[in-house]
């Protein structure tokens, strides 16, 4: 099982190397001042990557433990949360989006509802003023709120 992961990776990397080489060869240069040009380096790298991947396919190394099902689901949830954070960031603004996401993240990492909510409120509000006033970063206040303010 562990060994298989390295072999699959090796094959995927050879595919990547082929993609890189094909893309590089297809590059069209209007003119060139130098003997090497932009193609040679990526092509060389793809050859190197292919050789290294072949070695790995024939001599696979140790892997980490893959997460079991329940954990994989949690991982996916964290990813979805981060993605939601990105989507909501400008829509709802920094304070509301981070309040929601921080609370949910804290819950996922085994905090109680009360603690999670408290973390969410404190981090989003203190964070907002720290970043905007102390560090001078402009953060989105949210399209949604702009209409009210």
């Amino acid at each position: 099982m562990k060994i298989a992961a390295d072999r699959v990776l090796g094959i995927a990397l050879i595919g990547l190397a082929a993609f890189i080489a094909v893309q590089a060869v297809q590059l069209e240069m209007p003119f060139s001042y130098e003997p090497v040009g932009p193609k040679a380096f990526p092509v060389g790298l793809s050859i190197l990557l292919t050789i290294l991947s072949l070695v790995m396919i024939f001599r696979p190394g140790p892997n980490g433990q893959w997460p079991h099902k329940a954990l994989a689901l949690k991982l996916l949830l964290v990813l979805v949360l981060l993605l939601a954070f990105a989507v909501l960031f400008t829509q709802l603004g920094f304070i509301v989006s981070s309040l929601l996401v921080v609370t949910a993240l804290a819950r996922l990492f085994d905090a109680t509802w009360g603690k999670a909510l408290l973390t969410g409120v404190l981090m989003s509000v203190i964070g907002y003023f720290l970043f905007t006033t102390a560090l001078g970063i402009s953060l989105p206040s949210g399209y949604w709120f702009d209409t009210f303010i």
Binding site: F109, D110, T119, S138
Partner: peptide, 24 residues
């Protein structure tokens, strides 16, 4: 606890990257 640490890292990461060009 991790439930404080992880959200804090997430916020710092998002703000750090967002402030570069203010785009998603």
């Amino acid at each position: 606890p991790r439930w404080v640490l992880v959200p804090a890292i997430a916020i710092l990461a998002f703000v750090g990257v967002y402030q570069l060009h203010s785009d998603l």
